[in-house]
Amino acid sequence: MGRAAVKDIRVEASKTSVRERTVYRLTMMSVLAGLCIASLVLSVSFGALHIPAGEVVKALLSDGDGVNRQVIWNIRLPRTLVAGLVGICLSLSGVILQGIMRNPLASPGIIGVSSGSGLAAVIILIVLPNYYYLVTPFAFLGAFAATILIYLLAWKNGINPMRLILSGVAVSAFLGAGINALMILFPDRVHGVMSFMVGGLAARTWKHFYILWPYTLIGTAAAMVISPKLNVLMLGDEIAISLGVKVERTRMAFIALASLLAASAVSIVGILGFVGLIVPHITRLIIGSDHRYLIPASALSGASLLMACDTVARVIMDPVEIPVGIIMAALGAPFFLYLLRGGIKSDA
């Protein structure tokens, strides 16, 4: 057989493989979308009062009256939707940061979102407890301010991802010291702070949903639009510059977007650190590192994971509710390790 013929066969074979890869990605995407809907229905269905899934769907899709409908529309649905939005925001923030820093340990915490919002919230809750309603805007501003501070401190003829990460660690430690100091100095007021520090969804309602959805929508849309640029940045700064990407400006825009997404989520539900680190990894193992697929897939898996974990958090020790952050870590970490050790073949 001639060399050309062999080549033809290989081209044919690899064409099949690319078709399979696309089919695989789209299948996985539909699976994730299905998972997302399933999590939503389950999350609304389970609770102190169990409502069968059929009734949930009926109540969601049609008018009517009754206790079930009241419970669903007034209590469970808003909370579940907030969980979904938070999952989307934190996951996207993590994907973006891991991408631009080309570092698997990057997460919203690394750009100061956790420590910045934490300190702001602690200051309000401990020092000025009468102004508790300011926690959300202050946590948001604190997170954003910490990001700006870290970015400025890391700037030296441009931003080097490693320097950004190290300056993030240092600033977070510094702000963390402030948080701890306040908690030690006011031990009697610590209880109110704890739920913010571990992140929880208790009593989240339409009000929170209305604050959160514009950020989620804008952030997700922006992330989808710039996802090809994120792929280019993955090739390294020099190649990206060669391809005409304004690397510094693009990176700054990405960091601002990541901070905005994470800050809006954290200011509503408190510090849920784990989601932004682990959901991107889980999704990458499933769908690959092409951000055009990774970004929508992460949004879907982040939303499903958080809604599912929140359901567990409400049900597992009923009537006591466990903060969702604890469930996330307890279930997410082993699942992640399982994937990491080859539970899913990632040759696609």
């Binding site: 690319v18 080309r102 993955m234 090739l235 390294g236 020099e238 190649i239 510059i241 060669s242 391809l243 005409g244 990407v245 304004k246 690959g288 590192s289 092409d290 990632s346 696609a348």
Partner: peptide, 22 residues
């Protein structure tokens, strides 16, 4: 920089590529 990129290409030493790019 984009119009420069249409004229000038660089291939750095040992560039990196994500594991699953074809």
């Amino acid at each position: 920089t984009r119009s420069v990129a249409r004229k000038l290409a660089i291939l750095p030493q040992a560039p990196k590529v994500p594991e699953d790019f074809t």
